[in-house]
Design a protein around this nucleic acid. Sequence first.
RNA 1: GUUCCCUUCGUCUAGAGGCCUAGGACAUCGCCCUUUCACGGCGAAGACACGGGUUCGACUCCCGUAGGGAACGCCA
Length: 494
Amino acid sequence: MSNSVRVRFAPSPTGFLHVGGARTALYNYLFAKKHGGSYILRVEDTDEERSTEESMKMQIQDMTWLGLHWDEGVDPSTFGDKGDNGPYRQSQRRDTYKQYVDRLLESGKAFYCFMTEEQIDQKREQLKAAGLPLQLKSDYRDMSLEEAKAKLAEGEAAVVRFRIPDQNKEYTFNDLVRGEVTANSDAVGDFAIVRASGMPVYNFVCAVDDALMKITHVLRGEDHLNNTVKQIMILEALEMNLPEFGHLSTILGPDKSKLSKRHGATSCDQYRHMGVLPEALLNFIALLGWSHPEGEEVFSLKNLEENFSSDRLNASPAVFDETKLKWVNAMHLRKLSGEQLWAEIQPHLDQAGLSFDKSSEWKAKALELFKPYMELLSDSVNLFAPLDDSKFAIAEEATEALTWESSPVVLQTWLEILRSHGGETLSEEDFSEAQNKIKKDATVKGKFLFMPIRVGIIGKPHGAELKILVPLMEKSSLIERAEKALEKAKSLQS
RNA sequence: GUUCCCUUCGUCUAGAGGCCUAGGACAUCGCCCUUUCACGGCGAAGACACGGGUUCGACUCCCGUAGGGAACGCCA
């Protein structure tokens, strides 16, 4: 029944949340929403060396930032358990795993293996030399449990391995994104399910937990495709229910190799700091391997929840194109109200040391003006910098305009108009009038009129429309700037 | 080495045998708007990896080849 759908995202806490992980999380989340099911967050921290509490918290924070909230799993605020199928951190489920390991051991479907690393390496070399698949068949696969336990009692170290069937067996399953996938049992060796330390290994815990947590659909990265057979074997050996599987394509870098750090930013955290909105990131990654039924390119999470379906998932790998991400971000930026946008850019302005003690009307107006120029929230820094008096400077590329013969006159006239102006600020009309007056008095037009004024206002030859920019500025500030530009212009004349 | 997966414009993709003269989006280029830049509007250029089948007909189905990716761990 559709309302019993249960999916999970199961990251291992060994670093930041990668955009690929975020996409897997997103698709699982959407799949649950679409079917009115549950979305579970399980933490796969069985690697005691690499897993850290810190990573888990960062990843949880990133997922929360993205707005991908889960129904069950590690609680995002207390980091305890939320839901009835916990604990949700595999490191806390060792007792549970032990029962299932024992079952396999007792039924002879798993065994203790005492091979040393050297012995295993040697065996692999032999297989390689013979041109055979690198699938290990342990020397201990037929040792009785009693005998093995005796060896254990003597203090010998052993891992537990799953016993691969002797005769080749074919496994096929219907992959949600790839259709029928077939694999043979001889494509895998006697794989380890418990380390010598007693901590079980991924393929085992993953399979067992999916069954125990009643997961119905497993949507995960393509890199797990080959693991699926192992997990099916475990589940069958334990007579547990099999979930359905769906293997998502890999996300590639611009050079078409798997997206990695050398390609630049790969973590959600990095994109957040660059000034990408969570919904924009979600929007963009959703399109990496999935397409909207209506062909829409810009949409909200809500829209995604309503329109997602796994049959529009694409099996081929996709290149992560930052240029398009920025465009998507720009589109989302523009949908925000002035108040919302200001809240988003505030941290970026703070970081750049810009501060504006202005009314919310002023902020909204300024933002309305700057929106079309923004792709990333961090672009606000360059946009707003001209409005911060403490940051005013005549830019290098502005000097040419100041060397024109007519420029000092233009600036002088502009200054006089400002000084004789009554109010504290200039309206758009005031500025238009001013421009016309300068045009007449200084007898200049075109860029000779326009450019020096611009430089006298923002210190740069390019930028937003002055008629909207000027009303955002204090007259006193305009005067000060014009004076600086005039001074510079005069010095350049000689 | 072995196995598995993938292959439509530069990039993301639409396409479930005739609707395809292969559609859209980003990027690129041109024009318009604009006394700057951007936004916006209009337009251009740009792809079915290759070879065999199957079929009246193939981007769509099958088989090979090539290319790319992944897996073969006491990592997940």
